[in-house]
Design a protein around this nucleic acid. Sequence first.
DNA 1: TAGCAAGTTGACCGACCGGTCATCTTATGC
DNA 2: GCATAAGATGACCGGTCGGTCAACTTGCTA
Lengths: 202, 202
Amino acid sequence: MIVTTPARSLRADAARNRELLLAAAEEEFVERGLDASIADIARRAGVAKATVFRHFATKEELIAAIVGSHFSALTAVARGLLESADPGAALLEFLTVAADGLQQQDLTFLQTASEGDSTVIALRDELHATVDSLVERAREAGAVRADITGTDVFLLICAPVHAAGFLPRPAPDLWRRYLGIIFDGLRPEGANPLPLPAPSWS
Amino acid sequence: MIVTTPARSLRADAARNRELLLAAAEEEFVERGLDASIADIARRAGVAKATVFRHFATKEELIAAIVGSHFSALTAVARGLLESADPGAALLEFLTVAADGLQQQDLTFLQTASEGDSTVIALRDELHATVDSLVERAREAGAVRADITGTDVFLLICAPVHAAGFLPRPAPDLWRRYLGIIFDGLRPEGANPLPLPAPSWS
DNA sequence: TAGCAAGTTGACCGACCGGTCATCTTATGC
DNA sequence: GCATAAGATGACCGGTCGGTCAACTTGCTA
C-alpha cells in the first residue's frame, strides 16, 4: 500500500524492515494519533527501537514519509480523474476517494506534518494544484458554483470525515452522508442535489 | 466568561485561584491543544502546580470542567433561539455562534473530553437535544431538507472551523465561508442559497 | 486576636518519551 | 567461505509529564 522510492539499494533485511516499519507506524498513528510512541511502533513491526531511528532520523521524518505517500497517492488519483468525461462526477469521485482514505485518520496528523518538512509541502502543493484543475473543470462544466475555488474543495475534503468521527461509534459510512451534504453546498442553485444515503447511525 | 457553580463556599483566595486556573487552562489548551501541561497552566495562573491538583483531581477533570461549561453555554444560546420567529435564521445563528466559539479550539479536545466523564456526557446530550429541537423547527419551516436531523447539524458544527484551520495561516473569518457552504448543503432545493463571503485567504 | 482548618507550596516520584551509542549480527561481493 | 561494511540491538541518557506529600501560610470565625 505504501509506495516509497528507496534512496539507494538497501540490503534485503533493511528493505523488509523499512516496509514493516512504515506499515506498523501507519496503523499505530491511526489508532493512537500523533502521540503514538516510537517504541510501540517498533514493537508492532517486530524490531528494536533503535532500528526505527536508523531508517528515520526523527519521529517527524517518519511522519513525513507516511503523509507524503498519502499525498502522492491522492495526486495520482486526481490526475487520472482529470481525463474523465464528466468533470462534476470526477470531482465527487475524487472527494469520495480522498475522504475514504482519510477515514479513521487523526487529522491533526496531516496538519502538523504538512508544516516544516519541505518534501511534504511540495507534495501537498502538487496535490493542491491538481485539485485546482479538477475544480476548474467542474466549474466550467457548471457542476459547482462559480465562486468555489480549488482551495475550498481542498480544505473541505476532511470535513465530512471529521464530522462523522465526532460520534463515539459512528456508522462506517456516515461520512458519505456528510460528504453529500457538503457537495450539495458546492453546487450552483438549480442543479440536482444528491440523493443522500439514509442516516444509518444508531 | 466561565461560569461554574462552586461546590461549597470556597475560601476567598481559593475561589479566585480557581477562576484564574480555569481561565489560564482555557488559554493554554487553545494554544497548545490537549498536550498543554499542568505546569504551564499553573505558571500562567500564577500558582504552584500542586494547587491545580487541589482544585481538579486529574487533568481529565480540569478538561471536563472547561468542556462542560462550553456545552452548557451553547445550550443556553440554543434555548434562547428556540423562541425566535424565524426558525431557519435561528438555526444559522446558532451554527454561527457555535462555530465562532469553537474557533482556534483543538477539536480533538472536545472529542476526547466527551467520552468518559459522565457530567460532560450529560451536558453534551442536553445540548444535543436542544439542537434537535432547533433543527426540527427549521425543518417544519422548510428551511432545511426533510431528511436532515439534529444529529447531522450537531456533527457538522465543527466542520467549517476544522476545514479553515487546515490552512497554515487562515483568514480569521474563512470559517464563515465554509459554514455558508455547508448550510447551503442542508437547504432544500429551490431555497435561496446564502451569499458567500468572498474567499479572502491570502 | 488567637486558633485552626482550608489552602498553598516546592521538592519529589515513577513512568514514559525521543533519541544515542558501543557492541554484536548478518547479508553480500569477491 | 571469508572479509567487511551495512544493519540490528539493548542498555542508557536527559527531559518532561501527571501526580503526591509533608511542611508552611493564610483567610475565617468565635
